[in-house]
Simulated assay, not measured.
Amino acid sequence: MIDLFAGPGGLGEGFAALEENSHHPFRIGISVEKEASAHQTLRLRAFLREYRRKHGQLPEEFISFHAGERGEPDWSEVDAEAWELACSEARQLELGTAEAASEIDKAIELLRTECDDTILIGGPPCQAYSLVGRARSRGKKDYVPEKDERHFLFREYIRVLDKLRPAVFVMENVKGMLSSTVQSRRVFEMLMEDLSSLGHAGEELYQLRAFRIDGDEIRLKEVSDPSEFIVRAEQFGVPQKRHRVIIIGVRSSIAHRADDVSIPRPSSPENGGAI
């Protein structure tokens, strides 16, 4: 996987933590985040995953550090090999810059030689799309939306998508992405146009799907309206009313397989179950 705009790594951790028959089918090849403290967490997550893969448990130094019994250790002294891998995986880069593009492109070439297939995940910065973020921006003197580069960072995601050509991509953002406008155009419409431009004339490279509840199951369904991309966490067994736009893109050559995929719907207060 390539994880863009990774933050402290929650989305990637969800994929990496999946286990099937004692096997973890998803591995993060590179994750990218520009903010220093988030990147530190991202790198530590990578280190702990690799350490646990090698040793079958978390390091004692982490457990005592997490419990507040000691200061943060030098992780390279705990396991130099695992720390080196973590530093290679978790990169502190600003997406949209030439440096970041170069590093990601190198990682893509390496992943192509090592992996059967790939997945792209991540979400462009939400401050430019969220209702709160937009209200704050309007209150800033001389703020010009057209000059706010955060509105257009989704195009770096599209650039990587076009170069990587993964089997599946997942793009996550706040609901405000559906209504945010720049130059009297909806940002979401621009995103859809860019996605449809991938591939050959008359044939889209990706088919878009949304999570949908079908009775007691969760399925991937085709979308007829942008609002169908909104995932309401409380309907999926999460005790929190967190609503996000989640777009699933499946490569057209394998999209028919997605229509047969279903998983049981988790119990939640809304459907009478218990968390």
Rank of each mutant, 00 (worst) to 15 (best):
R159G: 11
E99S: 12
V144W: 00
W83E: 14
E99T: 10
E172C: 08
D105G: 03
A107Q: 10
G71L: 14
A90H: 15
L153F: 03
S64A: 05
K175W: 06
K106A: 07
W83K: 14
T118P: 02
I108C: 01
R52Y: 01
Y157R: 15
T118E: 11
G122E: 15
A67S: 08
E77L: 10
Y129M: 14
L93D: 12
C115F: 09
F169A: 01
Y51S: 04
G139E: 03
E146G: 04
G68C: 10
L85N: 11
D148W: 00
P125F: 00
S130E: 08
P166Y: 08
V78I: 15
Q127P: 03
D162W: 02
I108A: 01
V168A: 05
H66Q: 10
C115H: 10
C126E: 11
F169S: 04
R159V: 00
R155C: 07
D148C: 02
G56V: 02
L164E: 09
P166N: 08
T97H: 06
G139A: 09
Q127D: 06
T113K: 12
D74S: 14
I121T: 12
S88D: 13
V132I: 15
L153V: 02
D162T: 08
E69M: 11
G96A: 06
Y51P: 05
L161K: 10
E156Y: 14
I119M: 09
A67P: 00
G139V: 03
I121E: 07
P166E: 06
E94D: 07
G96I: 01
E172D: 12
E149Q: 09
R159E: 11
C115R: 09
S102I: 01
T97L: 04
M171W: 11
E94S: 13
H66L: 15
H151R: 12
A107I: 00
L95C: 10
R138I: 02
A98E: 14
G139L: 08
D79T: 07
D142P: 01
V78G: 03
D74I: 15
R155M: 12
L93W: 07
Y51G: 05
K106F: 05
S88E: 15
E61G: 01
Y157D: 13
D162E: 15
L111W: 14
D148Y: 00
E109Q: 07
R155I: 03
E156A: 07
V174Y: 06
L120K: 08
V78F: 00
A135Y: 00
G133Q: 14
A135W: 00
G123K: 13
R70F: 05
R53A: 13
P59Y: 03
R70P: 03
D74Q: 08
G71R: 09
I121P: 02
A107Y: 09
E69Q: 14
L85S: 13
E84Q: 15
Y157L: 03
E89N: 10
D105A: 14
P166I: 00
G176Y: 10
G71S: 15
F152H: 08
E61D: 09
A86L: 09
V160I: 08
H151Y: 13
K147C: 02
E72C: 13
L164H: 06
I108G: 03
E99Y: 01
L48G: 12
I104V: 06
L161V: 02
E172G: 07
S130K: 13
C126D: 09
A167V: 06
P125C: 05
